[in-house]
């Protein structure tokens, strides 16, 4: 029998032998990264890709459907719980913001108080609003704490007012909105003197700087500060001039003019303030306080003029 005929007769066995031999050779070599293997792997991955994507989509759809049917109640409960947590977190966030604001405010007060330790500033908390009391603030310190009538109330922004009534534990501070609050003041730029008087109205914060010599130079925008004659430490801001009444076009016989002052500290926006325990500090203390401005040496201020010079026509 010829070899080709024999091969045809035993073709399955021959094929088996060839495939087995090739497989064993491949297994014996153990290589996985030859060209044939890489090509086959690429082909298989390309062919498999749609199947894998379809399987992934089906799996997601199944999970979604099963979750929707079986875990609907759990999801609703979890959603409610998450909403409550979100509400709690929002509340905490608001509290945190409030705490941060308060912290910044207290830092400012602390930085204000440190250099003025000689003035014995007493930090007090406002317990009663200014608006409903028409310009009077109730603070949480009284005679029990050493507060006395006439003490000055101020903030880092500027003067607030004066203590006008003292109870055992609570005191009243008349702000610059009260008509009976009068503070001796001067203009920082040229030290022109005057008296700041409250407007007497809770509707407007504007107060008045009275008794200004008709000849003095007073402009809108000038900063008004406490004068050395006042019970306040000298040089602390009261406000800025927003309007001037009287002057060149007014009655020539008038000796005085006035100006409207917008206070630097708005009493309606305060939570805390300082009460100056010791009243007017001594000149030595004032000289030692770096924060307190005094008139430049060698320059005579208007307060050095005689009464005749100041009011002469």
């Amino acid at each position: 029998m010829s070899i080709p005929r024999r091969i045809r007769e035993y073709r399955p066995v021959v094929i088996l032998c060839i495939i087995v031999a090739l497989s064993l050779a491949s297994l014996a070599s153990g290589t996985r990264s030859n060209i044939i293997s890489r090509g086959l792997k690429t082909s298989v991955s390309v062919i498999s890709y749609p199947f894998l994507k379809a399987m992934s989509a089906v799996s997601h759809a199944k999970d979604y459907a099963v979750g929707f049917v079986l875990y609907y109640d759990d999801t609703v409960q979890e959603n409610g719980e998450l909403r409550r947590q979100q509400a709690d977190l929002l509340t905490q966030t608001k509290d945190r913001k409030e705490i941060l604001t308060e912290n910044a405010r207290l830092r400012k007060l602390l930085e204000f108080e440190r250099p003025l330790a000689s003035l014995a500033l007493e930090p007090v908390e406002i317990v009663g609003g200014a608006f409903e009391l028409e310009g009077t603030l109730l603070v949480d310190r009284g005679s029990w704490h050493g507060i006395k009538v006439g003490m000055c109330a101020m903030t880092p922004d500027g003067v607030v007012g004066r203590v006008t009534d003292v109870g055992p534990f609570i005191s009243s501070v008349s702000t610059l909105q009260k008509a009976d609050c009068r503070i001796s003041a001067m203009i920082r730029r040229n030290r022109v003197r005057g008296i700041v008087r409250g407007s007497g109205s809770s509707l407007t914060p504007i107060c008045t700087l009275d008794y200004i010599d008709i000849k003095e130079d007073v402009k809108v925008g000038d900063e008004v500060v406490t004068s050395p004659e006042s019970q306040f430490p000298a040089g602390y801001p009261i406000g800025k001039i927003v309007a001037v009444h009287g002057g060149e076009d007014s009655d020539e016989r008038a000796l005085l003019k006035s100006a409207e002052v917008k206070p630097a500290a708005n009493p309606y926006h305060l939570d805390e303030l300082f009460v100056v325990r010791r009243g007017t500090p001594s000149h030595e203390e004032l000289a030692g306080a770096a924060q307190i401005e005094v008139a430049p040496a060698g320059k005579a201020g208007p307060d050095s003029k005689t009464m005749q010079e100041r009011y002469a026509p």
């Binding site: 088996l16 495939i19 497989s23 064993l24 491949s26 290589t31 996985r32 293997s37 082909s43 298989v44």
Partner: peptide
Amino acid sequence: GVFRDVAGDTTLGHYVLCNVLVGY
């Protein structure tokens, strides 16, 4: 066998040999 060897990251011939022998 080739497909499974490639997809399963086994040495080429592993599944081929088993499948062919079992088929025969």
